Computed example of a mutant assay.
Amino acid sequence: MNKNDLPLNELQELSAIKQAALSYVTEAFAEAEFDGLDADCMAQAALFAAFMELVATYGEEAVAEYAQGLPDKIRSGGFSTALKH
């Protein structure tokens, strides 16, 4: 089993890998902005691509269960502080 095979709830333990991945995404956003793309458009495309990949990896039901926790994480600032670390 590799790290991509871990259940969604165990991905929290992979903070170094997640930080590296976030760096790649942040760089892609910066490149897109440099090329004149709107950040909102990039964000929506990134979300779509991310959910497509998660569904392909874990299936619709697992991803739907994971997504149910997103409103609480958003409201509690889980994404507001993600880029500050």
Score class of each variant (00 low, 15 high):
M42E: 08
K18C: 09
A64M: 10
G69K: 01
M52H: 05
F51W: 06
D35N: 13
P71D: 01
L37I: 13
I17V: 15
L22R: 14
L83K: 14
Q68I: 10
C41P: 00
Q19I: 11
A49P: 04
L83C: 12
G36T: 05
F34S: 10
G78T: 00
L14P: 09
Y66T: 11
T26W: 06
N2K: 02
L11H: 09
M52S: 11
A16T: 07
S23I: 08
F48D: 06
E27T: 13
N2P: 02
Q19N: 14
E65P: 03
L14V: 09
L6N: 02
L47D: 10
H85C: 08
A56Q: 15
I74C: 09
N9H: 08
L8E: 04
N4Q: 14
V63E: 01
S23N: 12
H85V: 14
M1A: 13
R75S: 11
K18D: 11
L6Y: 05
P71T: 01
M1G: 13
K84Y: 01
L37R: 15
A30N: 10
A16Y: 04
E33A: 13
Y66G: 10
L70F: 07
T81L: 09
G78Q: 00
A82E: 11
A50Y: 04
M42K: 06
F29W: 09
F29G: 08
M42C: 15
M42P: 01
R75N: 11
P71H: 02
V25C: 00
Y58E: 01
M42W: 01
T81M: 08
A67V: 01
A20V: 06
M42L: 09
A32L: 11
V63L: 00
T26A: 12
M52N: 13
G77Y: 02
E10H: 03
I74V: 15
T57L: 14
F48I: 00
G77H: 03
A21Y: 07
E10D: 09
E65C: 08
F79C: 08
E65F: 03
A21H: 07
E33R: 13
N9D: 10
A50I: 04
N2A: 01
E13Y: 07
H85A: 13
N2S: 03
G59W: 00
C41A: 10
